[in-house]
Design a protein around this nucleic acid. Structure first.
Lengths: 141, 141
DNA sequence: CTTGACTCTAGACCTAGATCAAAGGTCTAG
DNA sequence: CTAGACCTTTGATCTAGGTCTAGAGTCAAG
């Protein structure tokens, strides 16, 4: 519960969150982070809220959300009550997209595995099922 | 076994393989396709071998190989005998990379699923496990 | 006060894999 | 012969998510 007033430079924020300074400025340009206060010198001045928001962005990115989707999530999370429903919907959509991607990769994976297993690893290229599958239409499983 | 002499324009090749004309020229620039013969007019003149090679590239790409890896595969496939071993090795590496990617996606997927299941879909943002997980470090499973 | 680390802006550049535009030459059906 | 489809080149543009540069100003330690 350490809510004392802090004033962090962009470098300090970057270090805390583990992200590059340029990335923070980039997120600001892209509307993912609000424009921070400025010192007299023009230096950006951040507080803990900015650190939290930046961590939010990074975690959402780790879950595979695009920056555009994250912008949307941030807007929704600011909407007390009504936002929750929409956030859940976005998460479900993301989950479905991941499932689809996994299924697709699994299909490719299994096809490739069959080829690898069938390949003796020596002999002429004509006998290699991997090369045959790549060259001949009809050699596909 | 239709190996009669054919001469195809780039457009005809593109249509047969189902790829854009620009993509064929791009592959040529990138060294994935040999420079074709030219008519007196300068038009590229392709034969069935080029069509086969282009299909090879497309199939390999569908299996998740990058264009750089495909360049390598093409070189290997030209090596009668010794190439087969290396091709199998590349395919095994590709398979391992896909497995790793699937495992990673599955981890993310399961984490996200838990959050979705725990979210009531209404109420205040503080009660939404999805938002909590994104905001708070310690709310992570 | 000096030095070195930090920050500012605007804008260029990067990867991968294409895709498009402009300005012009060629080919073919009618 | 002409319309219109097709082809040529060079070079720019796109997506996504940053990363880097130059030139200038600021801050903190000693």
């Amino acid at each position: 519960m350490n809510t004392h007033i802090t004033s962090l430079t962009i470098g300090a924020v970057a270090k805390r969150v583990g992200v590059a300074i340029d990335t923070i400025r980039y997120y600001e340009r892209e509307g993912l982070l609000p424009e921070p206060l400025r010192r007299a010198s023009g230096y950006r001045s951040y507080d803990e809220g900015a650190v939290r928001q930046l961590r939010f962005i990074r975690r959402a990115k780790d879950l595979g959300f695009t920056l555009e989707e994250i912008r949307d999530l941030l807007a929704l999370s600011a909407d007390r009550h009504r936002g929750v429903k929409a956030v859940k919907k976005r998460a479900q959509e993301r989950l479905a997209a991941i499932d689809e991607r996994i299924a697709e990769l699994t299909r490719v994976r299994n096809g490739l595995e069959q080829l690898v297993e069938a390949c003796p690893g020596h002999g002429s290229p004509e006998q290699c099922p991997i090369l045959r599958a790549l060259v001949d239409e009809d050699a596909q499983s």
